[in-house]
């Protein structure tokens, strides 16, 4: 029997589905099977507290991900830019994200990457920054000048005080899975809740 695909609804549909299915399965189902670090790990990974989880929900509904990525790519330029006191930031690994119920890896950097921002600033700094990124007040004089002119981060002034605290608590966890910020003796600083 000669099959004329172009006359047959069934054959066109089945053909289109099967060709698609090969790639679909190999790129969605297979990766977590051959790379279990995409969902499980032996490393200790930070467990989010209730407050941090509320922060995650705010991060999601405020859409921070549309301006901020959370991944240090395997590139010297990323590592150096998002490093701290001349120490390069470690590259992000798959396992660091296994407890992230919602991933915020992101695709657009209108603002800086946040994967390693935890502990870099005090919570008081974040408070002032969320209130108004263009005018953080007298306490942070190094934020004058250029920031007032070009920071295009929205002010999240409309969040309640509680919400800003929750959000900050979450931001301070970012990057702690690789305890990379060390003091002069090379000991991990572990100062995320400051």
């Amino acid at each position: 029997m000669k099959i004329d695909v172009e006359k047959s609804l069934l054959w066109t549909a089945t053909g289109a589905f099967l060709l698609f299915a090969v790639g679909a399965v190999l790129t969605t189902v297979v990766p977590p099977m051959v790379n279990p670090e995409m969902w499980t790990t032996e490393h200790t990974v930070h467990e989010y507290t209730e407050q941090e989880k509320r922060g995650i929900a705010i991060y999601k509904s405020e859409g921070c991900v549309y301006c901020h990525t959370q991944q240090i790519r395997d590139l010297e330029s990323d590592q150096r830019r998002y490093g701290w006191r001349l120490v390069n930031a470690p590259v992000s690994s798959s396992w660091e994200y296994v407890n992230d119920r919602y991933n915020f890896l992101g695709t657009k950097r209108t603002g800086p990457d946040l994967a390693r921002v935890g502990g870099k600033y005090s919570s008081e700094w974040h408070w002032a920054h969320f209130k108004d990124p263009r005018n953080m007040g007298e306490k942070f004089p190094n934020r004058k000048g250029i920031y007032e002119k070009v920071s295009i981060m929205p002010s999240f002034d409309y969040l309640t005080d509680e919400e800003i605290k929750d959000l900050t608590a979450y931001i301070q966890t970012l990057g702690r899975n690789k305890n990379w910020r060390v003091n002069a003796e090379g000991q991990p600083l572990n100062d995320y809740e400051k």
Binding site: L19, G23, A24, T27, V34, N35, V91, S94, L105
Partner: peptide
């Protein structure tokens, strides 16, 4: 038509090039 049915679906991972996803998957994409 037939080539697009087969090849398009594999490319999603190119959004993660250099990122924390399996290297082989990036290469495939």
């Amino acid at each position: 038509f037939w080539v697009i049915s087969f090849v398009y679906v594999w490319t999603g991972a190119h959004h993660m090039i250099h990122g924390p996803s399996p290297h082989w998957l990036q290469t495939v994409s």
